[in-house]
Design a protein around this nucleic acid. Sequence first.
DNA 1: TCCATATGTCAGCGTTCGCTTACTTTAGCA
DNA 2: TGCTAAAGTAAGCGAACGCTGACATATGGA
Lengths: 95, 95
Amino acid sequence: MLIRTPAELGAILRDRRKKLKLDQSTLAKRIGVSRQWVIEVEQGHARAELGLILRALDALDIRLDAGTEQTPARRITKPGIDINAIVARARKKKA
Amino acid sequence: MLIRTPAELGAILRDRRKKLKLDQSTLAKRIGVSRQWVIEVEQGHARAELGLILRALDALDIRLDAGTEQTPARRITKPGIDINAIVARARKKKA
DNA sequence: TCCATATGTCAGCGTTCGCTTACTTTAGCA
DNA sequence: TGCTAAAGTAAGCGAACGCTGACATATGGA
């Protein structure tokens, strides 16, 4: 399963949790976070802490693999200008 | 490359950046973050934001894959008591 | 040697995290 | 119908994020 966005990660976590028949409270205790945290991350919370995310994956026996690949048509979503940077700035200005 | 900790992620990012002959400033601009951020994440910053991390991986053409696997001897590091939870609490109390 | 580049550190600031606690809503079941 | 558990929402709080800007070390070339 490829992960590109926080929302995708959240969906993966939720699916896996359900497959293991755990409720949010139990999982939260297992990870060492609050139930609130589980709810927000499953909903795709983009600013969740990396460390906690990794612990959540571990608690659910999900392995994370990083690969340098060649996925052909990948940069089509990247025009000349840098979308990511623009979004990043927008996020800040608005706030 | 398996990712288990923020430090491992940081090392992967740094290696990949060097392989692409980018300096921290250039990468930071490409991701849409400050140079500071790049430095800290490469050093294994555990509380970095998930969304920014994903953007960094994208900027470096690193693919993230989540897999439910069976890695045999995996739970040996998990005694009866829940280490993760203990660490989590410790992190909080100390602060 | 002097200068430019790359990396790392420090301090201060506004924003937001993740936490707790409490309430609401939904679903299944006796 | 009422009860229970699961899931979601909201408010308030201390701690830490990521940012800017300036400064500190290498390292390498002119």
